[in-house]
Amino acid sequence: MMGSDLIMYEEEFQRIDAELKKLYHQANAKVVFLVDKNGQLIASAGETHDIDTTSLASLTAGNIAATGGIARLLGEKEFTILFHEGEKDNIHISLIGQRIILVVIFDNRTSLGLVRLRVKKSSESLAGIFDEITKKVEKEKGEGKLEEALFAEISDEDIDNLFR
């Protein structure tokens, strides 16, 4: 398979989760979530119960992809921040590294300035965690340990059974 798969471990997931919760509180946001550029939801914090986060993740990634396409047409590498203003809710979307999208939904309990400030701080910590994941995956790949346990156990029959 081409490209590299995104792999998330328990330990790093807990750290990401904690970072998102911190951002949610400090920015006084409604919802905070992380999506990978292909539209997969990685983690979320806040009032997510009545939001369809899966759809939101896929549309956000589509949004970033379209904006990235526009950027390249204009000779820019990427637009790293998107902001949509609504009547009640606003959405702040930013790119972390080249791969992860951080989304903050907020209302008039906070301000764009505060959100931007907190997002900037969190982005640095999150970028650090994702760097560590990349290193960990590479290390385990080098040692041949990665996913062996999981995928060696999956038989052709297991896959066939999914489609009965």
Binding site: G3, S4, D5, L6, I7, M8, E10
Partner: peptide, 15 residues
Amino acid sequence: MSFINYSSREINCKI
């Protein structure tokens, strides 16, 4: 490019 999440025990693929 699949997303393998050990924390939530999910494998996500795109078609």
